[in-house]
Design a protein around this nucleic acid. Sequence first.
DNA 1: GTGAAAGCGCTAACAT
DNA 2: ATGTTAGCGCTTTCAC
Lengths: 335, 335
Amino acid sequence: MSEAVSRPTLEAVAARAGVSRATVSRVVNGGDGVRDSLVTRVRQAVDELGYVPNQAARSLVTKRHDAVAVVIAEPGTRVFADPFFAAQLRGISKELTAHDNQLVLLLTEGRDDHARVARYLAGGHVDGALVFSLHLDDPLPGLIRDAGVRTVFGGRPDWDDGDSGGAVYVDSDNRGGARDAVRHLVGLGRTRIAHITGALDQTSAVDRLDGYRDVMGDADPELVVESDFTPGGGEHAMRELLTRRPDVDAVFAANDLTALGALRVLRAEGRRVPEDVAVIGFDDMAPVAEQTDPPLTTVRQDIEEMGRIMARLLLGGGPAGGVILPTTIVRRASA
Amino acid sequence: MSEAVSRPTLEAVAARAGVSRATVSRVVNGGDGVRDSLVTRVRQAVDELGYVPNQAARSLVTKRHDAVAVVIAEPGTRVFADPFFAAQLRGISKELTAHDNQLVLLLTEGRDDHARVARYLAGGHVDGALVFSLHLDDPLPGLIRDAGVRTVFGGRPDWDDGDSGGAVYVDSDNRGGARDAVRHLVGLGRTRIAHITGALDQTSAVDRLDGYRDVMGDADPELVVESDFTPGGGEHAMRELLTRRPDVDAVFAANDLTALGALRVLRAEGRRVPEDVAVIGFDDMAPVAEQTDPPLTTVRQDIEEMGRIMARLLLGGGPAGGVILPTTIVRRASA
DNA sequence: GTGAAAGCGCTAACAT
DNA sequence: ATGTTAGCGCTTTCAC
């Protein structure tokens, strides 16, 4: 259909304003060091012609794009359903917009897409990438490193084994938050404190487990049940726990959804929360933690802020290494 | 920090393969009309050097970008929370990926952003735009038309007053679906059929109301209550309805969320569904419609497919005018 | 079938 | 302070 009507070029504006292309370029890019009278004249020509700079031409010479890619190694199905990504994307979107940068969303629906993403990043479309890697065996981080674009990871990448190794990432203080949670339970006088883990192929789950062990190192291993961050998984794990150790008096769940499942089972089994069993979660996702019965005490992490900081780091060219965001305990009724 | 290492250019590949830039270009773009031996030689050079074409340079001459913008005139807060957008984006993302196109997400957090979006679109970054306008007074559609990019709208734009006017859009058959819903209620023997509307500044809400009126033209106007597509709004409207017409025996709610609210009030008031009052929704959002008590009978529209078709239309350069997708009734227990 | 050369629209030295 | 000029990396006639 109607091919994009060919827009006016710098040249046209220059002709109309009776100046050189260089001058128009200067005005368009801020206009420092150009006589006011000329600035006005050029601005007017720009308006009259409806001139908008061609970004491809500009990028070709400046090597800047004012765009960053957000790479999420999850099928769209999950991304748009998970409030976690939602909050992160919101933070990112806000920060990018504030810096006049565009957000290019790259979702990988499957293994084949990885090559496509790598190609895109190497193609020099964007100034950098924000990557959510999530899984320990993911080949994507490697591919992206090879593509040679500035990258900030959301969550500690698994191949960052303690010493930064040049990677830039933003993560919550999962381990510290977990320690706080368990200590809170200890402070309540609980002694048989269990932990329902998250999916252990994600560093966040591993870190939270480590935090639990920091405090409960000498506890019965039976008190740790592996799970997967879902409510269903939480239910299953809680039942298992009740079988293994009927005397359990506190549970630290790897996230709020897991805690939700645990709560359901405890109620079904007639255990009072928090009197018989105290329960604490992780995340503080408002729609979940505030609605449980009883309302959930949990470890809060500011997800949206995390997204914002990732974007800021990428744009500002922050230092290599990790940025760890603090967590805080939000006390409600469950512990 | 580490500036993106300067990637090899066409020139470098040409030198390495001992051919001209033109030949490399041909090979990279499909390689028709080039001797097989040369093709092989060039391919090898490409691999060895890790060459990836610079898109800015390519776009500058071809005027193509293999990228399309998705413009959503809603703050990120809503977009990432609403399963409706989620499904649409999923469909779009899949179709674009299949055609090797990238998705640039443009959210407008406020009025100021409109200019930014318009500028971006006019800047020739993308081959087209997929726009979700949604509200009747929105200035965005106009701005976008002026930007001169191919555009497909999601949902009938309000300024499309019957005759297409050159706009391309994809919408569900809201009016027809509404008629079917009401007829279904009639078929159940109901006579005092009410309608709780959606937000009437959106064409979808208006169309559904029109569909209701097509069938119930002569009904008591008191049976129509204006609402806003939310569960809270549905509750409020249902209470109002019960006051106005305590004898109501069926409700057609403008969407599933509204129906959810209505259901809650009916239960609280001791009305049995569907025995005393039959309820039918619109959308068939699985997480909602399947979980209500009783499960909701509703009008299904395939949102993901809608997204996919929008993308296909944009890429394929479809005909002007609207594409209307059919709806079907999904019978569960509430009507 | 292959190469040479002319731009695409812009910015950034370098002159003036 | 402004204009001139040389590319950025690629595609695409047009000759050969």
